[in-house]
Amino acid sequence: KRNTKPGTAYRATSAHMLAYERASRPKPAKLHTNTLLRAKVEEDLAKKYSPEQIAGRLRVEFPDQEEMRVSPETIYQSLYVQSRGALNRDLAACLRTGRAVRKPCRKAGQRKNRIPGMINISERPPEVEDRAVPGHWEGDLIIGKGNQTAIGTLVERTTNFTMLVHLP
């Protein structure tokens, strides 16, 4: 935010420092700092509302108060993640699943977006490491906002010749 007081100037370095401090991680959990919000979420969890329902109800009950909004993921993290535990752990039993520990969505060892036949970078042949022999390429993928755009990058490791490929 630009300083609009008369006689004061905008200072980029000061603004950068303030932005850096505000963005630092880990931030205190919203349910830890806002006691009114925490009480409301605890009350709704006791009524057996799901975190998704609670987040929706808060948007309807407090339409003009940003500080009274919370995402369902924040509620789950406050229940299940010890470092984020602003909510009482006993409230996890109020969830419809009744689980005290979060169940992973996928099986152990299974990874999303696995490429068939992919060779891991640690399995490269040794001659690739010294970059003496040309012809070894390294590829990467850059995906844009909302998965709407994509660019493939190819870099030849000896010469650093780079190709960018627009992907539809």
Rank of each mutant, 00 (worst) to 15 (best):
K1A: 07
K1D: 07
R2D: 08
K5T: 07
K5C: 03
P6T: 00
P6F: 03
A9Y: 06
R11H: 11
R11I: 03
T13I: 01
S14C: 10
S14T: 13
H16C: 00
M17G: 15
L18R: 13
A19M: 12
Y20R: 14
Y20M: 07
E21R: 12
A23L: 10
S24E: 04
R25L: 11
P26Y: 08
K27F: 00
L31P: 00
L31Y: 04
L31R: 01
T33R: 15
N34T: 10
N34I: 09
L36I: 09
L37V: 06
A39T: 12
A39H: 09
K40M: 08
V41T: 11
E42D: 12
E42F: 05
E42L: 03
E43W: 04
E43C: 04
L45N: 11
L45E: 10
L45V: 08
A46Y: 03
A46R: 15
A46K: 15
K47Y: 01
K48W: 03
P51W: 05
P51I: 04
A55S: 14
G56W: 00
L58G: 09
R59M: 08
V60D: 11
V60P: 00
E61N: 12
D64C: 03
D64I: 00
E66C: 00
P72Y: 06
P72H: 11
T74E: 13
T74S: 13
I75H: 03
I75E: 04
I75M: 10
Q77V: 01
Q77E: 15
L79Y: 02
Y80Q: 06
Y80T: 07
Y80D: 12
Q82I: 01
R84P: 00
G85R: 14
L87F: 04
N88F: 01
L91A: 02
A92L: 03
A93G: 13
C94M: 11
C94R: 10
R96T: 09
R96D: 08
G98F: 05
G98Y: 10
R99E: 14
R102E: 12
R102A: 14
K103G: 05
C105I: 03
R106N: 01
K107G: 11
K107H: 07
A108L: 10
G109N: 09
G109A: 06
N113V: 14
N113H: 11
R114L: 14
P116Y: 01
P116T: 03
M118Y: 12
I119T: 13
N120T: 07
N120L: 08
S122R: 04
S122I: 07
S122T: 06
S122C: 07
E123S: 08
E123G: 00
P125I: 06
P125K: 05
P125C: 07
P126I: 02
E129Q: 13
D130Q: 06
D130A: 05
D130I: 10
R131C: 13
A132G: 02
G135R: 01
G135V: 02
G139A: 14
D140N: 05
D140V: 01
L141F: 10
L141R: 10
L141V: 04
I142V: 15
I142A: 14
I143A: 08
G146V: 01
Q148T: 13
T149L: 03
T149H: 11
I151D: 04
G152A: 15
T153A: 11
L154Q: 03
V155I: 15
T159D: 05
N160D: 11
L164V: 10
H166D: 10
H166I: 05
L167V: 15
L167I: 15
